[in-house]
Write a protein that binds this DNA or RNA. Structure first.
Length: 350
RNA sequence: GGCGAGGUAGCUCAGUUGGUAGAGCAGCGGACUGAAAAUUCGCGUGUCGUCGGUUCGAUCCCGACCCUUGCCA
């Protein structure tokens, strides 16, 4: 089959990377990405059923238990018999991070790694061998998976320390701290007015002695992610429709119940699109029409940022869709592309 | 119908003592290494309601008209 010949150079390339890092094992997965509301969840479900795969969600908001309607999480009925990982990992009261997601993903991959051949013939559906579909819109999670994120858990207190610097002396405080510690790195810092990145850079510098730089495995050229995309105007229409559906299917009630169960939410969960607005609605600081409007706008802006990420940060094959394409038809096209590219090899850390 | 206020970017508005105009939001593009649905950077020509008048020159002053809005009838 043509799959294997196409897959060959990639495998060689990745084996080289593997030797210079202390990565012990690999797994393979098919990766499906795309902006929010492009329909990737339904497509992944169909493909998982047809191929006998499990699904690993790469989405920063599906990790929260109970945040279902507003995150467009597939329902239990939607999921059928397909095992899902990467969802319902923590409560909205707990903070979450990319690191925690990788941790969780790693344990999933380990289970799959043992069942997968590391080299040789990869077919799209290895007979009798369950395979993994990674689906999601959080580009950083996918890239962390495919390219290997430098790992270091900062000891508690360090971020707080730098946060304090920021609170007291603002962005210029962080800038001068970084300039002092790493002048040449600061000079070429990509966006020096971004407090998050400055803060994280200082945190990492203190913890690991290095700044964020090279990805661990430079396999971007070998990884092909399928990205679903709709024309902007059609996507905007779908977003508006989906937000209205959320309200019609009890979104406000969901948020009300969640607040009762968890009076205080983590900073990450509290910023979720829709949840922030409906909380404001319940606090009477926003009308329902204003909440709806704001949700639609924020979702559109998210979608735009997601597409920017996939355009520039991942080796992607874009699948241009129309709103008239059915999930089954899309699934068929994705399947063909997966046949063509073969699965992506993922290095499992540890 | 009378009196007042207003009609400027997709929206909300600022402004020009007359030399053809700029903010916020939206939109578009970019960045992104453990907060990522986060955070952050860049991009502003639009018959200044319409038609006349005054003027070297009008979006600005004057007149008429159209539309919106408030109060009084």
């Amino acid at each position: 089959m043509t799959d294997t010949t196409l897959g060959q150079p990639r495998l060689k390339h990745q084996k080289q990377d593997r030797s210079k890092d202390s990565i012990t094992s690999t797994a393979t997965a098919f990766i499906l990405a795309g902006a929010t509301a492009t329909g990737k969840t339904a497509v992944a479900q169909i493909l998982a059923e047809q191929m006998g795969c499990s699904i690993l969600s790469a989405d920063a908001m599906l990790v929260y238990k109970g945040m279902d309607i507003g995150t467009a999480k597939p329902t239990v009925a939607d999921r059928g018999d397909i095992p899902y990982a990467g969802i319902d990992l923590v409560t909205p009261a707990e903070p979450f991070s990319t690191g925690r997601w990788i941790e969780s993903a790693t344990s999933v991959l380990k289970a799959f790694g043992q069942q997968q051949p590391t080299t040789g013939t990869h077919t799209v559906t290895p007979q009798g061998k369950p395979s993994l579909i990674v689906v999601g819109g959080t580009g950083l999670y996918i890239k962390a998976l495919t390219d290997g994120m430098q790992s270091a858990v900062a000891p508690p207190g360090i971020r707080e320390k730098w946060q304090l610097v920021f609170d007291h002396s603002g962005i210029s405080g962080l800038q001068s701290e970084l300039r002092q510690r790493a002048p040449e790195a600061f000079a070429s810092f990509p966006d020096p007015s971004n407090p998050r990145r400055l803060l994280r850079a200082l945190e990492q510098l203190e913890t690991m002695g290095t700044l964020p730089g090279q990805w661990k495995t430079n396999s971007a050229s070998a990884t092909t992610v399928i990205v679903l995309s709709l024309p902007r105007e059609q996507l905007h229409r779908r977003i508006a429709r989906r937000v209205d559906q959320m309200f019609q299917t009890g979104f406000i009630e969901e948020v009300r119940a969640l607040r009762k169960a968890y009076p205080v939410w983590s900073a990450t969960a509290a910023k979720a699109i829709g949840y922030e607005e409906v909380c404001a609605l319940l606090d009477n600081t926003l009308t329902q029409e204003a909440a709806r409007e704001k949700m639609i706008i924020r979702t559109r802006q998210l979608a735009k940022r997601q597409e920017t990420w996939f355009r520039h940060q991942t080796q992607a094959h874009w699948l241009m869709l129309t709103e008239h394409d059915t999930p089954h038809a899309i699934a068929e096209r994705v399947y063909e592309l997966w046949r063509h590219y073969g699965p992506t090899t993922i290095h499992i850390p540890g």
